[in-house]
Design a protein around this nucleic acid. Structure first.
Length: 236
DNA sequence: ATCCGGTCAC
DNA sequence: GTGACCGGAT
């Protein structure tokens, strides 16, 4: 077996990062969970956002937090009440996991949501993505958080021919890691921004390359641009 | 009618 | 590695 080579930073990484962050500052949506660093609130938002669109989560997020303002409230709530606040969101196992998580945090972590990816990942309902999201969005760590939005952006921008298997996923996580700025507000913003790009511009059905801020740093965007130019020339 | 999506049990 | 879990969007 050849030794694993350390992932190399893609050539357009600095431009990609810079343009993405500049775009996010202007066009990023003002969402409730972007106004807090409270790990509990971030966690609640991430659980709700698993498999669920932003537009549908907002109302549930406010109601849920009004009912259970802290991990302690959630930990000692009646399960039926928790399920009730989740009604309409679907995937009800998330609600049960979130309460179990709250109970675990109170019992084993002194009521504090852990800040290490490995410890977060060990909590019920927290996979690698959610662990990265909480580490980044609550604690501003420079760790990747690759959901399918982010995976799609990374695929189109840096690995247009990559597969969809576990190996490809590892590769995308590595690429995400090489793109990250230093810990702090910009690491938070980078992860928010790349998700926002996947949600607003580089969507599953259509890559809106014509409106994309990182087009010149993206292999799909550049290829798309050449196509357009070819089309224009033929029309002349 | 079909697509979309994190985590976990299998 | 595969499928079940849910409701909305397309």
């Amino acid at each position: 077996m050849p030794p694993k080579s350390t992932p190399k930073t893609p050539p357009h990484a600095p431009a990609f990062r810079r343009k993405l962050l500049a775009w996010f500052r202007r066009h990023g949506r003002d969402l409730p969970w972007r106004r807090t660093r409270d790990p509990y609130r971030v966690l609640v938002s991430e659980f709700m956002l698993q498999q669920t669109q932003v537009s549908r989560v907002e109302g549930f997020y406010h109601r849920f937090l009004a009912a259970f303002p802290t991990v302690h409230h959630l930990a000692r709530a009646r399960p039926g009440r928790v399920r009730e606040e989740w009604d309409g969101l679907g995937y009800y196992r998330r609600a049960a996991n979130l309460q179990r998580l709250a109970q675990t945090v109170v019992a084993e972590h002194d009521g504090r949501i852990p800040d290490e990816v490995a410890k977060l990942n060990a909590l019920p309902g927290v996979g690698l993505y959610t662990a990265g999201a909480v580490a980044s969005f609550a604690y501003e760590q420079a760790v990747p958080a690759v959901d399918t939005n982010v995976a799609r952006v990374l695929r189109r921008a840096f690995h247009p021919r990559i597969g969809v298997d576990a190996k490809a996923a590892r590769r995308l996580w590595e690429t995400a890691a090489t793109l990250l700025p230093r810990p702090g507000p910009s690491a938070w913003a980078f992860n928010q921004a790349i998700m926002e790009l996947g949600a607003l511009i580089c969507t599953a059905r259509i890559a809106r390359c014509g409106e994309c801020p990182v087009r010149s740093a993206c292999s799909t965007g550049r290829r798309e641009k050449k196509r357009e130019e070819g089309r224009e020339r033929r029309e002349e």
